[in-house]
Design a protein around this nucleic acid. Structure first.
Length: 182
DNA sequence: ACGAGGATGCTCT
DNA sequence: GAGCATCCTCGTC
């Protein structure tokens, strides 16, 4: 059985990425629940994208990128931070969309406590994971199955802009970053 | 507001 | 051993 959301995520990362702006990412339940509205994403494709972790095929780290669409791919960045991605494309295709930034929607106090500060709670991929308490333990879970981390439909007013991806050394020319300006 | 530089440890060659 | 899909602090403006 594949709902509407799963079908949407089954599309190519380049088509799905802008559609995810405004969607919600939620972790935890009740008192330990926190939720953000997605405002910045980057698409990473597979074999044809030298900047993607999936470029060059499946490895231990990127294995979850090849799972079914809607899977959560979490990796460690610079040995310090966690970064969260939403897997897209058909099962077996190595694609994912990096969630670069969000806007707090619920559980803001919890995010402040986790971040150890009152501002800049989730305006970066590593910060967003810290605010939502997403770690390598969550790698591979299904975001559409009501587990500890969930992707939920949502809307947010704003203007969508496109720019090259940040922090990469290869395929810099591809404008595969989408930001929702409000 | 913005830019430079260092910390940090995992992944793959 | 090289290379990171980053963040923080501190210096300038």
């Amino acid at each position: 059985m594949s709902g509407a959301l799963r079908s949407m995520l089954e599309g190519d990362a380049l088509d799905v990425a802008p559609k995810l702006l405004g969607f919600r990412l939620r972790t935890g339940r009740r008192q330990t629940s926190a939720e953000v509205a997605i405002v910045e994403v980057e698409a990473y494709r597979g074999e044809d994208d030298p900047a993607s972790h999936a470029f060059g095929g499946r490895t231990l780290r990127n294995a979850c990128m090849f799972e079914r669409p809607g899977t959560l791919y979490v990796y460690r960045s610079y040995g310090v931070h966690w970064c969260a991605n939403i897997v897209t494309g058909e099962d077996g295709v190595g694609q994912a969309i990096l969630i670069r930034a969000g806007r707090p929607v619920a559980g803001t106090d919890l995010m402040r406590a986790r971040r150890g500060r009152d501002d800049h709670l989730c305006d970066g991929p590593g910060k967003l994971c810290e605010a939502l308490a997403i770690t390598g333990d969550d790698d591979g879970i299904d975001l559409l199955a009501g587990r500890r981390v969930q992707l939920l439909p949502g809307r947010l007013e704003g203007i969508t802009t496109t720019t090259p991806r940040l922090g990469i050394s290869k395929a810099k020319e591809k404008a595969w970053r989408w930001v929702l300006l409000t």
